[in-house]
């Protein structure tokens, strides 16, 4: 059994907690949150021990691993403290608000030799995995261009403010929605290392952007466009799509479908010339406990298995998440 604690029981924290609670190899030793109503409900109805101060929790419960799902502005401080204690860390995305701070944590995690993972769950979705596999085998030939998109209905009218509407606390569409798209492009296509120009548009939010449009380039000189908008109510929930066009074909992939077009007969089996459509049920792997999507359980299972030494710690590491943070910073620095 791996002894796990949680810091931050908001939307993602509670979701992680439920999955951890049902995981056969995990013992949840403590939950820390500053909201009294949250810890109160948990104390009353669950069997988890709750704390208002995470430092006290660490001292008392001595966890081997900690899930950090506190607001992004606290990630740097909390994660550093955990690494220094030699604790394995899973932290929610985005990784850090400051790239220097992130770089330090990447080094520290390596030095301490602890398992480190960030919650970019798309990498645990079968369709994106298959897209990555095909891209690795150069199935599309020479790449000409890519488009990374995400749309959804988070802020669809002017409303009261929370930390999500404060840029200094990690709010805004760039850090929330766009970080997913950047991370996926980095993974499926190649790491983005240049931003030629970006528009950060406020639509309903007063202080943060609701949409991000950027012209980018990867480290192998591929050009691409990012188009992200969390104020689009024509989408029922967040929908993320990556499109890649190459001289041998074209790929369009989202969390439910992978469509790939091949120009010639010579293409990787079982695919054939023309359009090929695969659905998530062709790829989804069974999980022991399901909540909201296989990927949320799969990423946690992967982290626990990495601690147990059953899988390598090479998916969604601090390092790749830091690369995503770096692109976010470049977009901020290149906004028009």
């Amino acid at each position: 059994m791996v002894r796990v604690a949680l810091i931050g029981a908001g939307k993602m924290g509670i979701s992680h907690l439920a999955i951890l609670g049902a995981h056969p190899d995990v013992k949840v030793v403590g939950v820390a949150d500053t909201s009294k109503i949250v810890t109160d409900v948990l104390e009353k109805y669950s069997s988890f021990e709750c704390f208002s101060d995470y430092k006290k929790m660490l001292e008392k419960t001595k966890p081997e691993a900690v899930f950090v799902a506190a607001p992004t502005k606290y990630h740097g401080t909390i994660v550093k403290e955990l690494l220094e204690k030699g604790i394995h860390v899973f932290v929610e995305k985005p990784f850090c608000l400051n790239v220097n701070e992130g770089a330090e944590l990447v080094q520290l995690a390596k030095l301490k030799g602890v398992v480190n993972q960030v919650g970019y769950h798309n990498k645990f979705i079968g369709t994106f995995e298959e897209a990555k596999r095909l891209m690795n085998s150069f199935a599309l030939g020479d790449i000409q261009h890519f488009v990374g998109e995400a749309y959804g209905p988070v802020v669809v009218r002017k409303k009261q403010e929370t930390w999500r509407s404060k840029p200094e606390e990690g709010g805004g569409c760039l850090l929330d929605y766009a970080s997913h798209v950047i991370d996926l492009v980095n993974y499926i296509v190649a790491p983005i290392n240049k931003v030629h120009g970006a528009l950060l548009k406020s639509i309903y939010s007063g202080n943060v952007e609701d949409a991000v449009y950027a012209l980018v380039e990867t480290n192998n000189k591929l050009s691409g466009v990012l188009s992200v908008n969390w104020s689009d109510e024509t989408y029922r929930k967040m929908s993320t799509t990556v499109t890649v066009i190459g001289d041998k074909g074209k790929l369009i992939v989202d969390a439910t479908e992978m469509k790939i077009y091949f120009k010639e007969d010579k293409c990787p089996p079982p695919y054939t010339k023309g359009w090929n459509v695969k659905h998530i049920n062709d790829f989804a792997e069974e999980v022991a406990f399901y909540l909201r999507g296989e990927e949320y359980s799969a990423q946690i299972d992967y982290f626990i298995k990495a601690i147990e030494g059953k899988v390598p710690n090479n998916k969604n590491t601090f390092e790749t998440a830091w690369q995503t943070d770096s692109v976010i910073e470049k977009i901020k620095n290149n906004k028009n």
């Binding site: 908001g10 939307k11 909201s35 109503i37 949250v38 209905p153 988070v154 802020v155 409303k159 009261q160 929370t162 930390w163 999500r164 929330d176 929930k237």
Partner: peptide
């Protein structure tokens, strides 16, 4: 879920 993303639990 959308409300929690925007407004928090409370």
């Amino acid at each position: 879920a959308n409300a929690v993303t925007e407004l928090g639990i409370v």
